[in-house]
Simulated scan of single mutants.
Amino acid sequence: MTQTLLHIDASARRQGSVTRDLTARIVNVHSDARVLRRDLAETPVPQIDETWVNANFTPAADRTEAQVEKLTGSDALISELQEADTIVIGLPVYNFGLPAALKAWIDQIARAGVTFRYTETGPEGLLTGKRAIIAMASGGTGAGSEIDFASTYLQHILGFIGITDVTLVAADQLAINADASLSKAQGAIEALARAA
Rank of each mutant, 00 (worst) to 15 (best):
L22Q: 04
S145R: 02
V114P: 05
I189V: 15
L36M: 13
G142V: 10
Q82D: 03
R63H: 06
I106M: 12
K103T: 10
I109Q: 05
V88E: 00
G122T: 03
L154P: 11
A84L: 01
T51K: 14
F57H: 13
I161C: 02
A195F: 10
L168R: 08
A112M: 14
T19H: 07
D39I: 10
I109T: 05
T152Q: 15
A101Q: 15
I133N: 03
L154A: 07
D172Q: 09
A104H: 06
I161E: 00
T164W: 02
V45A: 05
T141L: 09
S11D: 06
G162Q: 00
A150H: 09
V114W: 00
Q15A: 13
A171W: 05
A110L: 11
Y118C: 03
A171Y: 04
L71G: 04
H7G: 04
V27H: 12
Y153Q: 07
E146S: 15
Q173V: 12
H7I: 08
G73D: 12
G140H: 12
T4Y: 02
L126S: 05
Y94M: 10
A24Q: 12
I87F: 00
Q186G: 06
Y94P: 13
E80D: 15
V27S: 11
S11I: 03
H7P: 01
L40P: 02
Q15N: 13
Q82E: 11
E69H: 09
D21Q: 15
F57D: 12
K184I: 12
N95K: 13
V27N: 11
L71A: 03
I147M: 14
A24L: 08
D39E: 10
W105D: 04
S145K: 03
A132D: 05
S181D: 07
H156P: 10
A150Q: 07
K130H: 02
L158S: 00
A137K: 07
A100P: 09
Q108R: 09
S79T: 15
A110C: 14
A101F: 11
D165I: 09
L98S: 07
I163L: 00
V68K: 15
T141E: 00
V27Y: 13
R111W: 04
A178W: 10
A195Q: 13
T128F: 01
L77E: 11
I157E: 04
L158N: 01
D165N: 10
A12P: 13
S138N: 00
L182T: 14
R194Y: 12
M136N: 06
T167I: 14
L98M: 13
I8T: 07
G129Q: 05
A66I: 00
K130D: 06
I89W: 01
V88M: 02
V18Q: 12
S79E: 15
G187W: 11
R194Q: 14
A171C: 10
Q173Y: 07
A24E: 10
